[in-house]
Computed example of a mutant assay.
Amino acid sequence: MRTLCGAPNGHEICAVPQKSSGGGHRYDFVVSIEPSGTRIAAVALFAAWLVHDVEEVFTFPATSRLLAARLGTDRVVVSPAQSGLAIALMGVLVGAACVRGARTQGKSRLYRAVLAGLEAHVVTHVATSISFKSYTAGLITAPLVMLPGARVARAELLRGGSPLLPSDTVHGGVLLFAAAIVSHFISRLFLGAGCPRVRIPRT
């Protein structure tokens, strides 16, 4: 008989085999009050996302104006209120994914997709700033906070024997892109009247 362990609620529970007085065997259940590594990693991932998106809440409206000038249309401009609502909606998705990850020891497909997508999203932040040749929303905390948080979560999955796969990154990229579009659509639907209009220089 061997010790059986699991962490259904983020806390490790082990069934330890013991010999009974009658010569048979029984299991003693031992519950660890320490959170599992995956739970800690999931919390770290959400905390990193939260810090990163606080930066985006305050800076995305300015970045949207840069994008509007480049595209020649003010349809992409967002107000601070719209930015805040869209990011809050994304937070629901990220938070739900992290809860699922903690409860399933990182086996949740939603958690794996969101984790891989957030990690890859760091590259898009850097690439966007290079393209614009200026600061864009989220650039500071993407490599300094979001990337380390994602790497901690990735390392925990590897340690647990279920490393992220390239397919997780593909699924995560598609999921987060679609979620961002839907979040901004909803924010415009509810707060569209407050969207500022900017003058686009004619060339």
Score class of each variant (00 low, 15 high):
56 E>L: 09
51 V>E: 14
92 V>H: 05
66 L>K: 07
65 R>Q: 08
68 A>G: 03
74 D>W: 02
32 S>Y: 11
74 D>V: 09
79 S>P: 05
45 L>R: 05
54 V>I: 15
29 F>Q: 08
93 L>P: 04
53 D>Q: 08
26 R>S: 12
36 S>D: 08
79 S>Q: 02
33 I>K: 15
69 A>I: 05
56 E>Q: 06
33 I>G: 13
91 G>S: 12
63 T>V: 02
89 L>C: 07
46 F>E: 11
71 L>R: 02
80 P>L: 08
62 A>M: 14
52 H>P: 04
35 P>R: 06
33 I>M: 15
48 A>M: 03
81 A>I: 12
32 S>H: 11
84 G>A: 14
59 T>P: 06
66 L>V: 06
91 G>M: 11
91 G>C: 09
49 W>H: 04
94 V>H: 09
32 S>E: 14
54 V>S: 10
92 V>Q: 07
78 V>C: 00
77 V>M: 00
72 G>E: 14
84 G>K: 14
46 F>C: 10
35 P>Q: 05
51 V>P: 14
92 V>Y: 06
58 F>M: 09
82 Q>A: 10
78 V>Q: 03
75 R>W: 06
77 V>Q: 01
46 F>A: 10
47 A>M: 14
92 V>S: 08
60 F>D: 01
72 G>D: 13
61 P>G: 03
81 A>G: 13
44 A>N: 03
95 G>L: 07
49 W>P: 00
82 Q>K: 13
